[in-house]
Write a protein that binds this DNA or RNA. Structure first.
Lengths: 252, 252
DNA sequence: GCTGACAATTGATTAGGATCAATTGTTCGA
DNA sequence: TCGAACAATTGATCCTAATCAATTGTCAGC
């Protein structure tokens, strides 16, 4: 299986301020190398096409997935058929871990995706043998909770520019902890996905990107790749009312 | 210790729609009765005055708390000194459970509070003896995650009325799962707390309550107690674009 | 009961985003 | 390569909530 990302925190070029505290980002990955190895035999590799729905909210969850490459969105569908995106998930993120055995979110691939598929039955038996696994689940949950709290905080921002800036900061940060380059921010998702994640209209998203570009704060190669050129102004947009970093991770 | 709330789900008068799936609300309580009993000797009972800060974000977390009576708010302070309230916690809620050993949020009593105080050292040793405890932590985390996701969803609502209605629905629901009456909704927190929780101005909060009253949807005894009199209209305000319920609880 | 500090409401104005509508840009399969 | 379906942008208008400002209401301590 793919080796755990070597960057376990204070890697080379993490420009992005850590909004959630010390980058204990291994938590994002459910398993460490040893456990991955132990589960390797049980896992199969699966592929999904771009746009493919991996599972639907309310469905029986019969397997958990561990993304190898690609990006996925997790969302809930409201009564009026509008969507609320709860998270974007990237390589080595885990999803489908269910408590009750049902999916709380729908999951859809927004790029082609390769992933390890772990049947819950196998996972369950592994749980009985390996008590340390529970600890990793706890870490993963704490990580998700922290992420979701940060998401909620972004959603409280009044201005479109503020939301978009914080979103870019988030993507940059996630690239950093994945050990990827951070000069160019990769936006695999559609503008409408961003809108649904940030609770704003597509038009507002578009205009916010336009503003950032016009003001010379960012420069975009194409729709999906963008670079922050005026860092200090950018930081001001974000940091204006950004949350003060917490040292650790806590439930509540 | 106080016995676990008898209502473990399908109690008598849960009018409120469950926005998060099956009411597996025991998860809110970290410990079951047996475990409470086992920890009883280690716990001390502590009291906090209204307005008292129980601990501050970034502080070392040397104890976890289990609320007996009273209400508490968890919040983060932004750089510009503005506050973002992440959660309101009620009786039998747990807080202060930390992974890294540091608090991620500040906690302040918004009413007089009585709570069990569990030193982390005692808790830690208990963890070694009792493997089932980890499972309860997982349940608690899943519960918190679900709550926070719902909070994020509320924050995406465009209209003040929608946010306030969903907030009232949430309070009503929480009263129901705590086994309290649900005809009158108790609002222990200040308007400014609600504003900080919902990402809106105090004035907007005030006007939204005014609107609901004027339209005859709610009736308020006093600042802190309010009753929903026109249920169908109320449900329409909420359900307009409310999220469809999920059957279970899942991470992502 | 008074009084001062704080909480909540109410009013007027304004700024920002939602919405509607139309255009341009992109992608992918025939 | 072309064209159709979808994605993104741009423009104009409307509407809501933020903001500023002033008033009223509430409560704790004297």
């Amino acid at each position: 299986m793919k080796a755990a990302v070597s960057n376990d925190g204070h890697g080379p070029a993490i420009r992005a301020v850590d909004p959630w505290g010390s980058p204990r980002e291994k938590a994002r990955q459910l398993l460490n190398e040893e456990e991955r190895a132990r589960l390797a035999g049980l896992a199969t590799i699966v592929q999904f096409r771009k746009g493919e729905e991996i599972y639907r909210e309310g469905q029986r969850a019969d397997a958990a997935f561990n993304i190898i490459t690609g990006v996925v969105k997790a969302y809930k569908t409201a009564a009026d058929n509008s969507k609320h995106i709860t998270a974007f998930l990237f390589s080595s993120d885990v999803f489908g871990l269910s408590e009750g055995g049902w999916c709380a979110n729908s999951i859809k691939a927004i790029t082609p995706v390769t992933a390890y598929r772990l049947p819950v039955r196998a996972l369950r038996s592994q749980f009985l043998n390996d008590p340390g696994l529970e600890f990793h689940v706890i870490c993963k949950l704490i990580h998700d909770l922290r992420q979701t709290q940060h998401h909620a905080f972004i959603l409280t921002r009044r201005h479109a520019l503020s939301k978009i800036s914080m979103f870019l900061q988030l993507l940059e940060y996630l690239q950093a902890v994945r050990g990827e380059q951070t000069t160019i921010i990769y936006l695999p998702m559609k503008r409408s996905d961003i809108a649904e994640y940030l609770g704003m209209s597509v038009e507002a998203v578009s205009r916010a990107f336009g503003d950032l570009t016009t003001r010379g704060i960012v420069k975009s190669r194409d729709r999906q790749h963008l670079e922050i050129v005026d860092r200090s102004t950018f930081d001001k947009m974000v940091g204006d009312t950004s949350i003060s970093p917490a040292a650790g991770s806590t439930t509540q």
